[in-house]
Design a protein around this nucleic acid. Sequence first.
DNA 1: CAAACAATATTGGATGTCCCACCTTCTGTT
DNA 2: AACAGAAGGTGGGACATCCAATATTGTTTG
Lengths: 242, 242
Amino acid sequence: MTTSGVASKARFSAQARLRALQADIMDLILERELEAGDPLPTENELALALGVGRNTLRESLKVLQALGVVEIRHGFGMFVAPSNFDALADGMTFRGRLSLRHKGDEALELVDVRQALESGLIGSAMDKMTAGQLAAVEESVTRMEELAAAGEPFVEADAEFHRRLFEPLNNALLISLLAVFWKVYRQIHLEVGTGAEDLSEMAAVHRRIYEAVAGGDKALAAERLAHHFDGIRHRIYEVIEK
Amino acid sequence: MTTSGVASKARFSAQARLRALQADIMDLILERELEAGDPLPTENELALALGVGRNTLRESLKVLQALGVVEIRHGFGMFVAPSNFDALADGMTFRGRLSLRHKGDEALELVDVRQALESGLIGSAMDKMTAGQLAAVEESVTRMEELAAAGEPFVEADAEFHRRLFEPLNNALLISLLAVFWKVYRQIHLEVGTGAEDLSEMAAVHRRIYEAVAGGDKALAAERLAHHFDGIRHRIYEVIEK
DNA sequence: CAAACAATATTGGATGTCCCACCTTCTGTT
DNA sequence: AACAGAAGGTGGGACATCCAATATTGTTTG
C-alpha cells in the first residue's frame, strides 16, 4: 500500500515514527481547535509535550511546512498555515526533469493530467464566468500578444491567463493544483527547448481559446484548450525518441 | 552548477535557505545522472559536499522523502525514490479536517476536484479499456455487493474500483493523485458520518457506474460518476450548516 | 563443503548543547 | 510625540555523542 518495491520489515519503524510524529502535531492542532493563522507552541514546548528531541521535532515540522500545514517564521513563531503547494511543485518538477533524461513517462503523465483538468473543467468555469472575469481573461491575452509582438516571452501572462480562466469556479485547491502543474509544465518546457520563434503563434493559440470561451462554445473551448498542450507533448516525444 | 557555498550575506530568509538546500540535493541527483533506485551519498558526505550540518541536511532530506524524491532506509542508505504521495495525502487530509471545523470550504473543493478529474477522464479511460480491465472493474463491484450484503464496509473494494477504472490510461501520476483524493475523501467521510445504513445503495451506485462503462455510454458514465459524489457533498453541507 | 550463526562495519535515527540570526516589544532619549 | 536602541524570545544551525537497523564478512558447525 505504501510503496511498491522492496518490502522490508523493520524499515517501517523509522519511517513510521516520523509520520506518527507529524500526525501527533496535526492532532494537537486539531485538538486545540487552532485555526489558520493561530500560533503553535514553541519548538521547545512541542518537543517536551511530544516527548522527542528538538532536532527530531524540527524534521517533522519542516515536512509539515513543506506540506503547507504550518508556517514557520524565524524569530517570531510557528503558525497554522494556509495551503501552500510550492514544495509539491518542486518535487514534481524534479520528477519531471528526472524522467526526461530517460523515458519521459512522468513528464508526459503530468501534461496529460493538466490537460485533462483544464480541458475537462473549462465548461463548468464558463457557466459561472462573469463579464468582468471574461474581460480579465482577454486582458491577459492582449498582454501576451503585446509581449509577443515585442519579442519578449510572456511567462507571467501565460500563468495569469490560465488562472483567470478557472477563477470562476472559486476553488482555491484547484487553482493551486493548476498552478503546480503550470509551474512544472513551464520547467519542462524550458528543459525541452521552448522553440522561442513561435511566440506569436502561442499568443494566437490563447486568443483562439479566449474567443471560444467568449462565444460560449464549450466543446470548442475544450478542444482548443486540449490542442494547446499538443505542442509540448510532441516536443517531449522528440526529446525521448532521439 | 550546484552553487554549493552560496555566498549569501543576508536577505535570504531561513525558508529560502531550506528550499535552496533541497534544490541543491535535487540538482546533485540530476547532475550525477542518477536514476530511480540509485544510491545517494551518505548523510555525512552530503553534508560535507553541500557545506551544511548534518541536522540541517536531514531536515531537507526528510522533506524530500515526504515529497517522494528520495527513499531513506535505516542502516542501508538513501536512494532516488519512485513517486510517493502518501505524505501529501496526510497534509491534504489535515487541511480537509481542519476546514470541516469551520466553513468546510477546502473539503468541498477537494470533492469538487476529485469529481472533475474522475468525471472528466472516464471517457478517455473507456476508450482504452480492455476486456480484462473491464472484468476487473466488475469484480470490484461484485465484491462491494457481497460485503454490503454481509453488512460490512468495503473501503478497500471502493478504492480498488476507482483505481481500476482509470488504470487503462496508464498514467501513474493520475493514479497517485486519485489515490490521494480518495484517501482524503474517505477521511472526510468518516469525520462527517458515513451513514452506514446505505451500504447496499452505495454498492448499487457503483454497479450502475459499471453498467454505463460496460455499455460504452461515456456521457452516462460521467453523469453517474458525478452523481456518486453528490451524497458526500450534501453531507458536508449539512455539517457546515448546523 | 555448505549452511547457519555471530561479529562487525556502515548507515541512518535521535538527542543535548551551544551559539547565531531574526523579530517583536519595551524603553529611553531626543 | 517620534525615533533609536536594548532586551527578550523565537526559530536556525552546527557538532558531538550515542542508539538502532542493515548488509557484509568471518567463523563455526553439521
